[in-house]
């Protein structure tokens, strides 16, 4: 069972991702959330591939997760001020994967959860 704070965090991650892709010029995208047994996933489906954004995301998101940042700075998530500010999200997500599927870019962010 998720706590109220866990739910808020998920909502703020979704908001942060939405702002991020909009700041990068996307006017249409799909974003979905799923809670699995050991992890949560956030999946972004985009109509085209922007190499700069993808490289930046990979660099930030694949950083090692830092629990102390997560515990303290999660309130700042969802309040993105520029297209180059994924610092906190990068420390909350474990890793990202992506694929190019039927002219759609599918980016999945994985975040492990304690059971």
């Amino acid at each position: 069972m998720k706590s109220k704070q866990d739910m808020k965090l998920i909502a703020q991650i979704i908001q942060e991702l939405s702002l991020f892709v909009m700041y990068h010029g996307y006017e249409s995208f799909d974003l979905s959330y799923a809670r699995l047994q050991y992890e949560e996933t956030y999946t972004l489906v985009l109509s085209d591939k922007k190499e700069d954004m993808l490289t930046y995301m990979e660099q930030k998101i694949n950083q090692k997760r830092e629990k102390e940042i997560e515990a303290y700075y999660w309130e700042l998530l969802g309040d993105l001020d520029s297209s180059t500010e994924l610092n906190i999200l990068g420390l909350i997500i474990d890793y990202m994967s992506y694929s190019w599927d039927n002219d759609k870019l599918v980016i999945t962010l994985h975040r492990s959860i304690k059971e």
Binding site: A71, Y72, Y73, W74, E75, L76, D79, D81
Partner: peptide, 13 residues
């Protein structure tokens, strides 16, 4: 620890 997390919103970091 409880208060400081919420104060971040006031000045947005």
């Amino acid at each position: 620890p409880i208060m400081s997390v919420h104060m971040l919103r006031f000045h947005k970091g």
